[in-house]
Design a protein around this nucleic acid. Structure first.
Length: 489
RNA sequence: GGCCGGUUGGUCAAGCGGUUAAGACGCCGCCCUCUCACGGCGGAAACAAGGGUUCGAUUCCCUUACCGGCUACCA
């Protein structure tokens, strides 16, 4: 059995969205599951869409995602170059296209844009076009003459109008189409560059690709590729078409619609491992039902035969959950390092914060790092809040009772020198007991006074420990004033 | 319009002729608890519709509906 070799073949047109990433991931997994070879090829045959720096983005994204390739532009494996514009310059595509012409499978086409346009018809607002094989019937002399005159031209594949073409896909099974449905597709454009359709087939063959992994949008053009393989007498690779990834409205993910790219997600504080893990589950499911998997486990478990046919909706909520799972499992030091910039953004750097403690509070309570900013913001300054925050049914507190308790407890806290969580907690517990309050009744107003929030990443005493004595007392006194003002209304 | 796909809870999904139709996210409730989160327990929620085939269809076939893709000198 020959070694499995897959490739990821993106066009350098910008940031990579989740759909692209998943295609790369599945390609990688299929190869690595079999101990095979994963290759990167850059498909830059469309000069109009080329974006400066996009190749770097692709490299960065693959690196961050952990999808290291065995061969690529910067890693020669003997079948390079790995960038199609370079291959084009070497005349590779031209050579094979001319071979097809000699064999009678392709022909030169000199039709002008205008003539082509006249071939279009509009049905229900949509343009339909089918080339009429006009140039197929040019005589040899005419062709020579036009070529010699340097007339712009393309090279087209000659698809017969009779018969059917069938191809096999691992996921979707056998798919047949009538040849009359197949247009005489362009192989070489008038600018000399090959089309995706052609370059793909030539390169996949020359580079020894055994499994072609790509999005489902290519499914209906795949029969054309088979005609190419047939004409060359090359072996058709194994096709694995992946189902689409869509948004909640079931529209295909795209940058245009503002859908997040891998980099956007990382910027929002998602971990690459979590993104990869979640993405793997969009269109595939492991047999053992275990959803949390790192790349190694994914590699071991991945069986492309279990890829599903139907499109999957990208659910950011589930990604958030999964990211939270990864965050909780992080080593506290690693978490601290990653969280620190966000913590600093939340609380500022003008005070002597115990960043470690803040990180500790956050780790079990966030799903993405950006959450930290909102979560810890109140440490910097108490936000505006409603007095009604002091009312809590279960704690049996009211504004009046809170005021009473705060007034009573402040002297205690003034005397307290040890502002560690444990000492504070013991002190307040005793206070509650002595005054006939329930613990929660005392804690609730303090926590509210000190944070101004209904929910905080820690209890009253934990917050005070971080805030320190001085700041805690300042906040408590301010709360008393606030409640007094309210009582006088 | 034509062609090609797809359709199990809100979402990801298991299932591959006989099941009380898994599990996960989300949602709701309870427990834990100095609030929240974590953790634990429980709950609501699905086979697009109609015909066949069959003793028996979520599973196989056909039709319809809906969704998507292709129909480019874009990939």
């Amino acid at each position: 059995m020959t070694m499995v070799k897959t490739r990821f073949a993106p066009s350098p047109t910008g940031r990579m969205h989740v759909g692209n990433l998943r295609t790369a991931l599945y390609s990688y997994l299929i190869a690595k599951h079999e101990g095979g070879n994963f290759m990167l090829r850059i498909e830059d045959t469309d000069q109009e869409r080329f974006v400066e720096g996009a190749v770097d983005i692709i490299n960065e994204t693959l690196k961050d995602a952990g999808l290291s390739y065995d061969e690529g532009p910067d890693k020669d494996g003997g079948v390079g170059p790995y960038v199609q514009s370079e291959r084009c310059r070497q005349g590779i595509y031209r050579k094979y296209a001319e071979q097809l012409i000699e064999q009678g499978n392709a022909y030169y086409c000199f039709c002008s844009k205008e003539r082509l346009k006249s071939l279009k018809t509009t049905v229900n607002g949509k343009e339909i076009f089918m080339y009429d094989k006009h140039c197929l019937h040019l005589s040899k002399e005419e062709i020579e003459k036009k070529l010699a005159a340097g007339e712009p031209h393309v090279i087209r594949l000659n698809v017969p109008n009779e018969g059917t073409t069938t191809f096999h896909d691992e996921i979707y099974g056998d798919i047949s189409v009538n040849n009359e449905e197949l247009d005489d597709m362009i192989l070489i454009k008038s600018d000399g560059y090959p089309t995706y359709n052609f370059a793909n087939v030539v390169d996949d063959h020359l580079m020894g690709i055994t499994h072609v992994v790509r999005g489902n949008e290519y499914l209906s053009s795949s029969p054309k590729y088979n005609r190419l393989y047939e004409a060359f007498g090359w072996q058709v690779p194994v096709y694995v078409h992946c189902p689409l990834i869509t948004d909640e409205q079931h529209h295909k993910l795209s940058k245009r619609s503002g859908h997040s790219s891998f980099e956007d997600l990382v910027d929002q504080g998602f971990l690459p491992e979590a993104i990869v893990n979640y993405t793997a589950l969009l269109g595939w499911y492991p047999e053992d039902n275990e959803e949390i998997m790192d790349l190694d486990q994914l590699t071991r478990k991945f069986d492309y035969r279990r890829i599903s046919k139907s499109p999957a909706v990208f659910d950011i909520e589930k990604l958030r959950w999964m990211n939270g799972e990864y965050i909780k499992k992080m080593d506290p030091d690693a978490f601290f390092a990653k969280a620190l910039p966000y913590i600093k953004e939340a609380v500022g750097e003008d005070r002597d914060w115990d960043y470690k403690k803040l990180a500790e509070m956050a780790q079990s309570r966030i799903e993405a790092f950006l959450d930290i900013v909102d979560l810890l913001g109140f440490f910097k300054a108490v936000p505006d809040y409603e007095v009604s925050l002091y009312v809590h049914k279960k704690m049996k507190t009211t504004e009046a009772l809170s005021l009473e308790i705060l007034r009573a407890v402040i002297p205690n806290l003034k005397d307290q020198e040890d502002y560690s969580n444990d000492a504070l907690f013991e002190d307040l517990k005793t206070f509650a007991k002595d005054h006939g309050y329930k613990n929660g009744q005392v804690m609730w107003p303090i926590r509210t006074a000190v944070s101004g929030k209904a929910m905080t990443p820690g209890g009253a005493t934990q917050l005070m420990e971080v805030l320190g004595k001085e700041e805690s007392l300042t906040r408590l006194k301010a709360a008393v004033r606030k409640l007094e003002a309210y009582a006088q209304q």
